[in-house]
Design a protein around this nucleic acid. Sequence first.
DNA 1: GAGTTTGAAACT
DNA 2: CAGTTTCAAACTC
Length: 693
Amino acid sequence: MDTPDKTQITPTTSLSKFEDSPVFKFIDSLSPIELAKSCQTNNTFNSLAFLSPSSLFPSPQINCHRESRHHFSADSNSRVLQSGKQSNTSEETSKAVEQSDLYDEHLGCLNKDSSSKGISSNLFDEKSDLAIELPRTSKYDCGSPDGNLEPCDKILKRTSLEVAGQDRSPFQRNRDEWEERQLSFENERDLRKIRRIKLSGESAGCGWVAVVSDVADILTVNSANIIHENSDGQGLGLGIADSGTTSFISNIPQIPPDNANNLENTESGDLQVSCEQNELEEPVTDQTSGILSSCLVDKLVVSDSGLKNDGKKKFNQSSRQRSIRRRCLVFEKSPGFGLHLNSLPNISKDQNPLNKSTLSSIKTGEGPCVSGTAVAENSSETPATSGGDDADHNTPEKKRQKFEFVEESASCKRCNCKRSKCLKLYCDCFAAGLYCIEPCSCLDCFNKPVHEKVVLEARKQIESRNPQAFAPKVIRSTDGALDSWGETSKTPASARHKRGCNCKRSSCLKKYCECFQAGVGCSPSCRCEGCKNSFGRKDGCDESESNEDGLEASEQNASDKNSHDSVIDKKTEEHQEFLVPSDISRLPFAYSGKLARSFLHSVTSSKPCTTQEHGLDSSSCQSKFNSNLQAIPEDETPEVLKHKCLPLVLKPNSSPNSKRVSSPHRECTSTTVLRGRKLILKFVPPFPSFSPP
DNA sequence: GAGTTTGAAACT
DNA sequence: CAGTTTCAAACTC
């Protein structure tokens, strides 16, 4: 595996950077152990980075954050190089990304080691690579954040052990795994450190995005390891024998008492609550808060999974890791948005109280948009911290539902590839930069972490053919500016499919049409014939005009009783009061992946927001959309990167067309605003408006 | 659920 | 670049 020249990332630079930062000072002040050197603190981040298995396909937003251009990079090399152009913080981040990739492989090896019967030569190569990489990595130190320095040679030793793991006895491997787990505990402490750091981490800058997202991955991996071992019957007495209740929380007793002060509750939900508490207290100007809370809530949910028992236990074990993993994908994507496309199809479960919690976790990234009510409600679902304030949110059913929701989130339907091995753009997952997971129905799938190299190669090849292959297909011009089609972005059609469609027979009125599917109008770049795109024809019909025609066509569609879309409409009508499909549809929500389709589908087919939701948690409903509407401006820099807090907010007094990603600082200031918006949205026709009102 | 249609992606 | 084939989703029955 190619690794960037580490000299690009001079430790001294980043170290001094961190030392000067409030984050560092805060760490320093909080750490129970005196930090002898600054590098130890830096190691906090490095160790995090080192240990975090970032996904091969970072979520688009975060990835765009790391690399302004591509959805995901072809390899870690380019990743780092690109990131290297950014600030020092970004250098840290990029390093973290790279290292986490290493660790990803590393973990893959571990898992294989402990579970598989054979070890491929490829695996061995990866290990060798790791062994080669580690010394370089560890030159920045291998210490834990608490000052529990882990000697470089220890890591090296461990690595070499793993490299030679295939020759080792089960006992030896167990020992290695134990050491690995110990390291995991340190990681968790790292997370907690960060959790505290977040309070003062405003100056940490965007680099935190990566760091924090990596935190989620850390937990993922740790949990996975533990689960795995337990399920193998090789548990080493770590915490809990019941694998169903292991995972994240099981590690907590390992936390030194001094840290416990910052982790008031060491049972399920502690992190969530403490996080939320802080979010209530602090001015939400720090994007890390959203990420953190998202990650932590995520972990909590996973922990709750342990409450499931017996019949589902096995399923839990097998699926939890995936769930977590994907949830980590979800939350690493961006601060604020929170939801990854992975989970989009599950938004529809919004009546499930779990949704509220999930959405609350989403909202935690929305800063001021997080209503105290919502947060409190969310908190109350946390068994360990609610203190039974609200029985409704504390029942085992709720917990179960909560987990079930997570499970469902992870099990949303995805690709169904049969012949492409999920290594072509045919594959939605691949195109979206995601690994395939269990819910996929694909055959001979290679789009999995274990085939990372293959995936990268495939991706490289595709990009060599078309460098923009993984770039968002639907773009939106900057607000107020004339877009490339001479329209202001205030017009709904300002979002366009970058390459345009080529429809011949669908008249751009079916989801065969990528423009239509994305809810954007056709543009001159389209080569469609007989375009009747209801979102805007390529021949330049204005919106209202095209809307009329489009409505006609939509009615045609709707007249088909079996039409899938009409089914959607029926469902949509139920909640059009609050959810504004027309706006949604017009939003250039889609990033390149077709998964965005499922998003739209899920959104429009989602169950209505209940009245209670409107009143109590209206922002939650809204954020369900907002968190998934990824308006991608023409420069392909997601809005998420331009605002610390990312809900898309439709201004109550503006035309529905003037949707924009607004900083919650400005827009999301009160429920009144939300309600006002809600009222206005009532009059917006639903999308897809296939059936007349 | 199976079969058909469709258009993007891939290939030549 | 154009034509053809492959592919998987959308759609229909």
